[in-house]
Nucleic acid binder design. Structure first.
Lengths: 218, 218
DNA sequence: ATTCAAATGATCCGGTTAGTACATTTCACT
DNA sequence: AGTGAAATGTACTAACCGGATCATTTGAAT
């Protein structure tokens, strides 16, 4: 049982083969979409062969679905490292928003997989219970912050955690998903590090504004 | 010269043929993506033939690029109907945001074309000067509102119209683009008319909050 | 050392699809 | 009514690509 790296003669290693295929598949599907991706191309970037793809994943759609799940799993895994319970509500929320913004930026392949899935009306995602569970858990984390903020009187009443999640996602997702068209039209300045930091701060404040008690006018 | 509807024997009508092809192309590309779209399918939904597609548009990519332009043109055309100059700045901005939100909802094919173009890193859009001009004009409209608001002292200083446009777009675009995955995971409630009205109001307020002079805290 | 299922290699195939070749018709202008 | 270019119809093809077929090897248990 040698490491997964070297392969002389050949040694069986089913799990490594599956993971190898999945990693390449995520990358290819994210880059080229479902019908734009060639199974042969995936195979060629793999340490194994096309034969193995069909052996383990049945067909192209099967592979795509598993790749989609893999992308979600990896990203939600990253989110789990975030501990917010010890922070006061406003700071917890601010940290969550800033983290989400950064995390999306760092995982463009995930974003692209979701874009592609949206193009396909989420029909493959709908078939995967795994993914639904992951995301519902993410909402619960947000709901906890909302309740704490309301209990302490720093958040207004009647906040809908789902709407809030929608708003946070809208900013963070769009920032990555529409970067190509946006910068093709308006230039890339908004996506350089300095501008992104400003933008992140702005949306943190915008979100905090949404949950804050009304006070302004004019 | 009869109308474009009936076609007995056959009568030449180059412009109508081109428009017919383009309309179908937008619909097909928006639904299935670039590589997911079949030229034969487009042809079959047309009153003309595949031969004509290649005759007028050269190849699949040429047709795609023209379809992308057509989608942009149609949407920007709709936006031009909006007259904001007679409104006070806050109301003008509020109206612009609400309109953008609705307008995006009403043009899902356009949204999907942009999504697809983003998947392709905007490489076809980048080749089209037409589109860039259209959008830069849209920003200018926003800049005018900002300047008026600042002159009247109701907006804070240092607003970047481009960032503002980014924020408005993020909400309005995401609302359509990610509806499939979002509702697959969290249910469709947020996308029914009542909830959408609430959401729209929320984001109008969020945007107004961004441009307003600081006053709140806690 | 045999056995047998799991894992892998090597090669092939049939349908699909973008694009083309060739022929024909329309129509504006003489 | 003739001419020629633009417009359209019909049929074909070459390449590509998802998937299948058949054979071989590995490795764990007997």
């Amino acid at each position: 049982m040698n490491t997964t790296s070297e392969r002389r003669g050949w040694t069986q290693n089913p799990d490594a083969v599956k993971q190898d295929i999945l990693a390449v598949a995520v990358s290819e599907f994210a880059s080229n979409g479902l019908s734009g991706t060639r199974v042969d191309t995936i195979a060629s970037r793999t340490r194994t062969s096309k034969r193995m793809i069909y052996y383990y994943f049945g067909d192209k759609l099967g592979l795509y679905t598993r790749a989609l799940e893999a992308a979600y799993l990896k990203v939600r895994e990253g989110e789990a490292t975030l501990d917010l319970d010890h922070l006061p509500p406003r700071e917890a929320l601010a940290k969550l928003v800033a983290f989400t913004f950064d995390h999306h930026r760092e995982n463009p392949d995930f974003i692209r997989m979701v874009m592609i899935e949206n193009i396909h009306n989420a029909e493959h995602l709908a078939a995967s219970e795994v993914i639904r569970d992951l995301n519902v858990a993410a909402i619960e984390k947000l709901a906890v912050i909302c309740r704490r903020g309301q209990a302490q009187g720093v958040f207004r009443a009647g906040i809908d955690p789902l709407s809030l999640h929608w708003q946070i996602s809208a900013f963070s997702f769009f920032n990555v998903s529409n970067r190509p068209t946006f910068s093709a039209i308006f230039g890339a300045a908004l996506f350089e590090d300095a501008a992104q930091t400003t933008l992140r701060q702005q949306i943190v404040e915008a979100i905090l504004g949404i949950v804050s008690k009304p006070a302004t006018e004019g």
